[in-house]
Structures are given as C-alpha cells and as structure tokens.
Computed example of a mutant assay.
Amino acid sequence: MGKLFDEIDAKLASWIEAQPLWFVATAPLAAGGHVNVSPRGHDTLSVLGPHRVAWVDYTGSGVETIAHLRENGRICLMFTSFDGRPRIVRLHGKGSVVLPGDAGFDEVVSLHPNNPSTRAVIAVDVTRISDSCGWGVPTMDVREERDLIRLHAEKKGPAGMDEYRRQKNSLSIDGLPGL
C-alpha cells in the first residue's frame, strides 16, 4: 500500500507540475457507460492550493471529461515519473468545468501559455492523495512537445473552432451533454 498525503505541499506540488505527461480518468454513472482515460501534457496544470488543482483544457475530438464532470464530478488524476525515482501519485476528487466568462477561468488561463485551442478550465477539489512505487513503469525520455493542437486551432480560426466544438464536443460517446 502506498502513502496517503493530507495535502499537496510545496514539494509534492513541484513534482506534480514538473511531470510532462499525466492522465485524467472519469466515468459516467451508468453501469454501461464508458470509462474515459485521457493523457495530458503541455504547460497546462497548476496546483492552486493544498487541496485544489486546475488545468487548461484544450479542444479535442471528444468531450468525455467535461460530460462526466457535469454529470457526477468524479475524477482521478494520475502522475507518473518516467525518469529518476519511480513514483506514481493519484489525486482523487470532485471536478468542475469552468468556461470562458466564468469566475476562475481567466486566473488559471493566465498562468499558462496562450493556446487558441483552449475551451475550458477543469478545476479539481482534491479529497484523496496517494502515491505508490511505480517500479513497473519504464523510464523514458521526453523529446519535445507536439505543437499540432495549437497549429490545428490557428488554421481553423475562432469561428472554425466554434463550429468544430459544436460538431465534436456537444455530446459524449454515451450521449451525455458536453459543451
């Protein structure tokens, strides 16, 4: 059994924010619904306090995280060390969707590089923090960030991105409301 933490302290916050790749998992309430696990990267995540994190959510081909959070709020973030000391940290909590114009959106977005693909901020009130060994996780080197999501959004422009979100982000794969 791994270690449980009372809060995200400065040392843990620094480690979390240094991870170039992390994962978010959500699920609908329906037993037949699809569990979703998505990789995240880029400079998008901020530790906002001892029990709160948030990230800038870019437009994607789906809207599962947003749809699941709107339905039930359950979320788990997993951070894994791929270099140095093996480690896995999970943040369980209650997530919420913060849209442009909502309180808190500009605050989180301002902490990160501007990206025309930004569609929301996902905020998480963390209720459980744990770590485990990660001994079975391989070590890997990160070569570079992909810039495709920004280039795609720039090519489409604001109106094209709005249309893309209407087509691809209005419903989850299980038919839950998205954007």
Rank of each mutant, 00 (worst) to 15 (best):
T139N: 12
P158Q: 05
P86C: 06
R128G: 06
D106H: 04
P116F: 00
P100V: 07
N115A: 09
G84E: 08
M161K: 06
V89K: 12
Y164A: 07
V126R: 03
I75V: 14
E144R: 15
P113N: 08
A153W: 02
P113A: 01
V97T: 06
D102I: 07
D162L: 15
V108W: 02
V142Y: 11
G93T: 05
C133I: 04
G136F: 09
E154D: 10
G134V: 01
V121W: 01
K156L: 15
K168V: 09
R90W: 02
Y164G: 08
F105S: 04
N114M: 12
C76E: 14
V142L: 15
K168W: 11
S117C: 02
I149L: 15
S110P: 03
G95S: 00
R74N: 09
R146M: 13
R90F: 07
V89H: 10
V108R: 00
Y164V: 00
C76Y: 02
S110I: 01
R150C: 12
L99A: 10
P158V: 10
P100D: 03
P158H: 08
T118R: 05
N114R: 13
R143M: 12
A153M: 05
G84M: 06
P100K: 00
G93E: 01
G136K: 12
R165H: 10
S132I: 08
G84T: 05
K156Q: 10
N115P: 04
N114I: 11
D106V: 04
C133L: 08
G160M: 07
V108I: 10
N114P: 09
D102K: 05
V109I: 07
L99N: 07
G160P: 03
D141T: 13
F105K: 07
A123Q: 10
W135Q: 13
K94F: 11
S170Q: 13
V124K: 03
A103E: 12
R74H: 10
N169D: 09
S170L: 12
V126Y: 06
G104Q: 01
S110M: 01
D141S: 12
Q167A: 13
L91M: 08
K156E: 13
T80V: 15
G157I: 09
N169Q: 14
G160Q: 05
G93S: 03
I129T: 03
V126D: 05
L77H: 10
G101A: 01
N72C: 12
G136A: 13
A153L: 06
L99Q: 08
G95P: 04
D125F: 03
E154A: 06
L91W: 05
R150T: 14
F105M: 02
D147S: 11
E163F: 10
M161W: 05
C133F: 06
V97Q: 03
E145A: 15
D131Q: 10
E145K: 11
R119I: 07
D147H: 15
D162S: 13
G136T: 13
V108H: 00
V109A: 09
C133N: 07
K168Y: 15
N72K: 04
N114G: 08
G134R: 09
S132T: 10
R150S: 13
V137G: 02
N169H: 04
L148I: 12
G101T: 04
P86R: 06
V126W: 06
G93P: 04
D147W: 13
R90L: 00
I149Y: 11
V89R: 13
K156W: 14
F82K: 02
P116D: 01
L148M: 11
I122N: 00
K94L: 12
R143L: 15
D141P: 06
R165W: 11
L171K: 13
